[in-house]
Design a protein around this nucleic acid. Structure first.
Lengths: 318, 318
DNA sequence: AACAGAAGTGCTCATATGAGCAGAATCGGT
DNA sequence: ACCGATTCTGCTCATATGAGCACTTCTGTT
């Protein structure tokens, strides 16, 4: 009787002849003394069982299978997953730019956050990616930043490449007192921008990690101690400058009320709320965003995607 | 006009849909707005240009392409090349065992050398690999070895698994004086074995490196100094206990005349002279054997094979 | 501007291949 | 040892695919 071992060896030989030598299944059958149907079946098995591995090696390759799983498990409209590489972050940014360029209908108004990731995406958008799209900032700026103007230039660049207008949010990200926030939001300019932001159909944003590396610390809005305290309260990271816990709720409601920018709830009703994230550290925030409907399109790397899916799979086993 | 970049991206998308999503070329064409013929052509390109990489992942996988090149360049009857892995040596041994098992016609008499490699091959031969094949040792034994009997047991094991008889060569590998060698070869038993060895149709042997690691040093036939001297004379390694230079000639004719065993020339006229080698260190001997017709079947690892081919390619560029 | 050669395109047609199915072989439990 | 259930096998047939071929479109040269 043919043992498991034998069949496997036969399968390997068949795979070699088929994929390396471009022989036809018929020829292989004749050569190895099996029917061509068996050859076909063993080839299917070989692919299924991973003996034959077909890989697409390209910086712009995607992981369609993982994307499908993500969409299904997290009820997303779309997902873009790029394979890992030494330039993973760049690949994710390129993928986001590609996605935005291909997005139909082309958004009349696009709301964006700011940060390193968004900057990378702006870099990679081609000129003419849209025709006359208005780009509006959806969370408070970084006037205190060492690299002044980054937030503003990101929006300006994206708008410029679309042949459209950039609308900046002339406000700090976080204010010291609730009253100040209310006052500044009452200001006609700021109110107008926020209104425009709320009217956008598409949002593109990233997320920050709740640790010492936060841009909000760099920018002087928070101290490292503030962040430690936030983490103690359950914060996993920030979206649009707002720190959320694993359930997608503000980790510190008091702080949240002093934060200027789009309400997170608005994201749930957007045509496209596109979260762009990459890197091991951001997995917890990403999970929070994705499990709580704070985005409906996720652009990320394979590692992040798979981690999210694994955890979810484990949970379902209970 | 479509730029190179565009086409490449299109190719990647097509490859993903075809290989990851099992869509038909027709469907892909419709989906991406190109004719199905273009889809087919781009897929061919993708394979050629390495964007799509198809790999057979299995310890018993082989490298048929490299094998073909080896056969052609070195005028071999056959070549077996296994992919690298953490168990490369084991793979090569298994491949040699497979080859021997599949060899037709089944040899009535098989001549073998001894050593670690041959031992590994013996281990991996299945019971009943042949029916009644006589296994004869073709070079002097290792009576002085710390692990006594290895050489004898190798032959015995191979013979046993074939349901045949083992014939051992009861002689030291190297003698101190030419006269002694002549005397021992004149002895009826030894002469008989050598005659039988010369009558074999198939030979299976490995090769040794000319350095301190040589089994002939371990066995006490040579001192490290002897080997250093041999290297000075151009020795690259030994085959059947005989040290050869890059041209396949005895590195030290005097020594060669004191070595007991089959003449290397006999290998050139064998139906199958199967060399089994693995490992970076053995590349020089392998090259010597292979370029000088001292084997007509080579069983080795991918690294060795590719190195031999590259060198050859370089030479041809001149 | 004209043109030869190369590269690319859409097509026909022969062939390779997978889906689906009925019968054979094998398995596992009593 | 029996029989029901599953797996395996060889097949038909519809479909997917690559080779080959005119024809078009570039490209670079005079």
């Amino acid at each position: 009787m043919p043992t498991r071992e034998d069949t496997e060896l036969l399968t390997v030989r068949i795979a070699e002849l088929y994929y390396d030598e471009n022989k036809t299944q018929d020829e292989i059958g004749a050569l190895l003394g099996v029917t061509r149907w068996k050859v076909g079946r063993l080839l299917t098995q070989a692919r299924e069982r991973g003996i034959v591995r077909i890989e697409i090696v390209h910086p712009r390759a995607r992981r369609l299978g993982v994307e499908r799983e993500l969409k299904e498990r997290f009820h997303l409209v779309d997902a873009v997953v790029v394979p890992m590489g030494d330039d993973t972050k760049a690949r994710v940014a390129t993928a986001a730019a590609d996605y935005l360029t291909a997005l139909r209908p082309v958004p009349r108004t696009l709301g964006i956050s700011w940060g390193r990731t968004l900057d990378d995406v702006a870099d990679r958008l081609p000129n003419g990616w849209a025709r006359g799209t208005t780009v509006v900032q959806i969370n408070g700026g970084v006037s205190l930043n060492q690299r002044p103007g980054t937030a503003a230039t990101t929006a300006a660049r994206i708008a410029h490449k679309a042949g459209g207008e950039a609308v900046l949010l002339p406000s700090p990200a976080i204010l010291e007192r609730l009253e100040t926030r209310l006052a500044i939001e009452a200001d006609r300019t700021v109110a107008g921008v926020l209104e425009l932001a709320a009217s956008a159909s598409v949002y593109l944003y990233s997320a920050g990690v709740a640790d010492g590396s936060s841009v909000l610390i760099d920018s002087g809005y928070l101290t490292p101690d503030d962040v430690t305290e936030l983490v103690r309260k359950g914060a996993v990271g920030d979206v649009l400058g707002r720190y959320i816990d694993a359930n997608g709720n503000p980790a510190d409601p008091g702080l949240d009320e002093r934060t200027v920018g789009l309400e997170l709830d608005r994201l749930r009703r957007a045509d496209a709320a596109i979260l762009v994230v990459s890197g091991e550290a951001k997995i917890p925030v990403t999970r929070a965003v994705v499990t709580n409907g704070l985005c409906n399109v996720l652009v990320t790397d394979e590692n992040t995607a798979r981690t999210l899916l694994e955890e979810r799979a484990l949970m379902e086993e209970l």
